[in-house]
Amino acid sequence: MTVLLALAIGVLYAAGTYLLLRRSAVRVVFGLALLGHAANLLVFTAGRLVREGPPIVPPGALAPPTPSADPLPQALVLTAIVIGFGVQAFALVLLRRACQEAGTDDVDAMREERP
């Protein structure tokens, strides 16, 4: 399964990078979103895949049962998901605004529009 996910992460990164290199600004924002997904899945996978269950302390115990999933990458990814959403929302509005001001969504043409 790890190998399968590694390949999926590779595809996500490749797709994100490809979109980031497009001239259409909308695709650039899509690429940003895909790269966010890719990074989250990368950190999650690197923290090892475990089918046993979440790191929750059952009643009467002092620690989660072993084995259970590693809580640390989960905490990191959780933060990243939320931040990623913030970035996406901002990028989307910025994109809309930039297209309005520049009159085009061509990334290369926008560069000429620098004041």
């Binding site: 190998v3 590779g10 990164y13 490809y18 290199l21 690197a46």
Partner: peptide
């Protein structure tokens, strides 16, 4: 596309190397 494929291969390889 070639550049993107290289990045993808790099990251997939990274995941495998980590394991």
């Amino acid at each position: 596309a070639a550049l993107a494929a290289a990045v993808g291969a790099l990251m997939a390889g990274l995941v495998l190397a980590v394991h």
